[in-house]
């Protein structure tokens, strides 16, 4: 009896091990994909036995979009997998729908921005709270700002992208679109008082690092100075000097603070 129990335990343990193995292998594959080692991930996924799970099929399609040399044929095959997986209602479906749209936005040789936006919008309708749907809305905003033929006027482009903001609940993604709205505002030479609120909103969320953050602080300071918001300009220039302690712009910012002091003095003279 004891012998049979031991044998049964062994069989069960082997079953558990066998069942766990593919999941571990997929996790290992994700690590390889994350480290940009697509070829190794491809080999690992290819060695998995049995019918592929949804996650495995998704991982294989993800690997295919960056498998060098990238071919249009392989991209079409990956899109077909994404399209099929997108019919579900889980996170894999949302991620697949997002990546299907990205194929038209950046991966295919001939980009089709209208089709990409159509797919992003459909995803946002279907699974509005999904991270991938919200990220898709940020990408839609970018295409509205610069790439789609309509709306044609810069101000209308910015307004169309602004309209997406209330639909983005994730703070960091909301911040990213705000930052892009601000950058598009200066690119299209829009009135500074319409540009600054976007940059300020992006800064309020925070979390930006390195050169992007340094650019943002300098930009808010300088544009505020140009728009006549002297207190705000001072606050941002001083923050720049404090936070970005080592940068070629330090001297320029210090000089702009001197210019600002002159402007503030002039403004005080005019006031009474």
């Amino acid at each position: 009896m004891r012998r049979w129990a031991a044998l049964l335990a062994c069989v069960l343990w082997a079953g558990v091990c066998l069942a766990a193995a593919p999941a571990d292998e997929i996790t290992a594959s994700w690590q390889l994909v994350a480290d940009h080692l697509g070829r190794d991930a491809y080999v690992k996924l290819d060695q998995l036995a049995g019918p592929p799970t949804r996650e495995q099929a998704f991982a294989q399609a993800v690997v295919a979009i960056d498998y060098q040399p990238v071919t249009q044929e392989r991209l079409h095959e990956a899109e077909a997998v994404f399209e099929q997986l997108a019919r579900g209602d889980d996170e894999i479906a949302a991620a697949s729908a997002y990546l299907q749209a990205r194929m038209y936005q950046i991966h295919y040789q001939q980009q089709d921005y209208a089709k990409a936006v159509e797919l992003f919008r459909a995803l946002a309708e279907r699974q509005p709270r999904s991270h991938w749907a919200q990220l898709g809305l940020v990408k839609t905003g970018l295409l509205l700002l610069y790439a789609l033929p309509e709306p044609a006027k810069p101000a209308d482009r910015i307004a169309a992208a602004e309209a997406l903001l209330p639909r983005i609940g994730e703070k960091k993604l909301w911040r990213d679109l705000q930052l892009q709205l601000g950058r598009a505002g200066t690119f299209y030479e829009q009135p500074l008082d319409t540009v600054l609120p976007h940059l300020l909103a992006a800064d309020r969320v925070g979390g930006l690092v390195g050169q992007v953050n340094a650019d943002l602080l300098a930009s808010i300071g300088e544009l505020s100075l140009r728009a006549g918001h002297y207190a705000q300009a001072r606050a941002y220039f001083e923050r720049y000097l404090k936070e970005d302690t080592y940068n070629m712009r330090q001297m320029t910012v210090r000089r702009r603070l001197e210019d600002l002091a002159v402007l503030e003095a002039k403004a005080r003279e005019v006031k009474p």
Binding site: A23, I26, T27, W30, Q31, L32, V33, A34, D35, H36, G38, A41, E55, F58, A59, V62, V63, I65, D66, V70, E91, A95, L99, R102, I106, H107, H131
Partner: peptide, 22 residues
Amino acid sequence: SLVLVKPQDAMIAGWAGLADGD
């Protein structure tokens, strides 16, 4: 810039896969 942006889709999915798994 595009050379950088394109493979990032796979890398983003990779990190998301790891985060979803754990």
